[in-house]
């Protein structure tokens, strides 16, 4: 059983909420793999996607402790089979005449975009789930990765229902 769990946390869009949530994770000793936060269809609400690396019992504690925060509106664990997730990476790869075409080929394979190119390096932007992005990075690795930046994972449930339709976790 995987110990990675993806939580969607709807919070009031107020200053300090992110600090409150990240402080809660660190105080209770829960490890965050990834955290992404942004506005939603509702101006008053922000949505966080938190990937945590915990077993089931501590996960229940995480959820309960999150729910105790006054500014947290809803916590939902997304079932990996019934949701889609995605993240962005920007990777700067050492590229000269000798290896440029190989890099471009790899980029194409993973539907990555070239967002910057010079005579010494190329910046690729790729979007997708962690497995896909890791495969791409593995292939790029021998070329020389000069710089790498990744966003947090964002995730959403499949199907017509919205997270706000679901009963409170």
């Amino acid at each position: 059983m995987s110990t990675k769990h993806t939580l969607s946390v709807l919070v009031e869009n107020k200053p300090g909420v992110l600090a409150r949530i990240s402080a809660l994770f660190s105080r209770r000793g829960f490890n965050i793999d990834s955290l992404a936060v942004g506005p939603t269809e509702n101006d008053a609400v922000s949505r966080m996607t938190v990937v945590v690396d915990v077993d089931l019992l501590p996960l229940e504690q995480v959820t309960k402790q999150l729910n105790k925060l006054v500014e947290v509106l809803k916590v939902v664990e997304l079932d990996p089979l019934a949701s889609v997730n995605s993240q962005v990476v920007l990777v700067k790869v050492r590229a000269d005449a000798s290896n440029r075409s190989g890099i471009l080929e790899t980029g194409q394979m993973f539907k990555a975009k070239i967002v910057d190119a010079t005579s010494e390096a190329i910046v690729l932007q790729a979007v997708g789930n962690a497995d896909k992005l890791n495969s791409m990075l593995e292939i790029l690795e021998p070329h020389g990765i000069k710089e790498l930046v990744q966003s947090g994972v964002v995730a959403i449930g499949r199907g017509p229902r919205s997270i706000t339709d679901r009963s409170r976790h």
Partner: peptide
């Protein structure tokens, strides 16, 4: 910030 972990809110 200091009292976040020791207040209810």
């Amino acid at each position: 910030g200091i009292t976040m972990p020791i207040t209810k809110h």
